[in-house]
């Protein structure tokens, strides 16, 4: 090893560290750069761990095919067909599950000690979380593309304008993105990737199934129907259905504000989740350390 390469920095330069000259522009530049570097870290992981991508692509294809062909014959949707009805439900379920990666990944990073490394670097405290949630966003975007393609093949059609359909995709991805922050916060609090996976399974399955995602909510027994009508996933599904033009004309929309104004409801929900959980997660990140 050479003297120059490892020796401590010269004292005179050390007296005036770079952070002294920090200005707003540089800080914003660093914030973007930190966020991009941690995003890239997650992109490399998607590339190097093929099961993530395989699961992300195969699972939605499987759901589309299973629901369309297994239940499509028996579930009668007045004024529509089951494939058109079900797609918004599958989209919503898949992206919500897709956002749980952030929870298990943060727990895993904490366990591996790499969070300690990041926290001792002079980087933006939000960067790791931004990179992580961006990773989920990308996975979900890929899932959406795969599901939409599969849907087209089995007969799903968009019956609205291109802009409305784009808004539907954006709304689904945004909701999942906000949910990624919730999961990231939970991942840092629970600290066990296994617990996160099991708990999200136990919580998200009922949440996505006791909704209007796979059957019209008015077909459910009363307690479940009430739950389904106020379930945020129902609002998301209803919003996506509306924007894709897939609301079955023969099924009445439940008479509550959230179901009557689903797009607005989802937008409010996204805003609320982000306002609460982005600061909470960043604050949590600044406090956690492995073990």
């Amino acid at each position: 090893m050479t003297e120059a390469s490892l020796a401590a920095t010269d004292r005179s330069t050390a007296r005036q560290p770079e952070f002294r000259q920090r200005n707003t522009a540089a800080a914003i530049g660093n914030w973007f750069s930190d966020g991009w570097i941690t995003t890239r870290r997650n992109l490399i992981k998607i590339k190097r761990v093929p099961d993530i991508l395989v699961f992300t692509t195969l699972q939605p294809i499987m759901f589309v095919l299973l629901f369309t062909y297994v239940y499509g014959g028996v579930v009668k949707i007045p004024g529509s067909n089951y494939t058109e009805f079900i797609m918004a439900g599958i989209f919503a379920q898949t992206v919500v599950f897709g956002s749980t990666y952030s929870g298990s990944a943060m727990a895993q990073d904490l366990k591996d000690g790499i969070i300690d490394r990041f926290r001792t670097l002079p980087m933006s405290p939000s960067a790791v979380l931004i990179g992580r949630t961006n990773g989920d966003l990308l996975i979900n975007a890929i899932s959406m593309a795969v599901m939409m393609t599969t849907g087209f093949i089995v007969g799903w059609r968009i019956r609205s304008s291109f802009l409305e359909a784009a808004a539907a995709v954006a709304l689904l991805l945004l909701f999942a993105y906000a949910f990624s922050w919730v999961m990231a916060f939970i991942g840092m609090s629970v600290r066990s990737p296994e617990v996160i996976n099991n708990v999200s399974f136990l919580v998200l399955f009922p949440l996505t199934f006791i909704s209007n995602a796979f059957v019209p909510s008015n077909t459910l027994p009363t307690p479940l129907r009430i739950f389904a009508e106020f379930n945020p996933v129902s609002a998301l599904v209803q919003a996506a259905r509306e924007l894709f033009g897939n609301v079955p004309p023969g099924s009445p929309v439940p008479d509550n504000w959230a179901q009557q104004n689903p797009v607005l409801t989802v937008l409010i929900g996204i805003t609320a989740l982000l306002l609460v959980f982005v600061p909470l997660a960043i604050r949590k990140f600044a406090q956690v350390s492995s073990r």
Binding site: N30, I44, K45, D112, G113, R117, T120, A127, S290
Partner: peptide
């Protein structure tokens, strides 16, 4: 800082790990 357990990203190469740290030091 170098901890008790190696705080490195398993999925990155040795080079990518060090390069990432350098960039995060700006």
């Amino acid at each position: 800082v170098s901890g008790q357990y190696a705080a490195v990203d398993e999925n990155l190469t040795g080079f990518e790990n060090l390069d990432m740290v350098g960039r995060l030091y700006h």
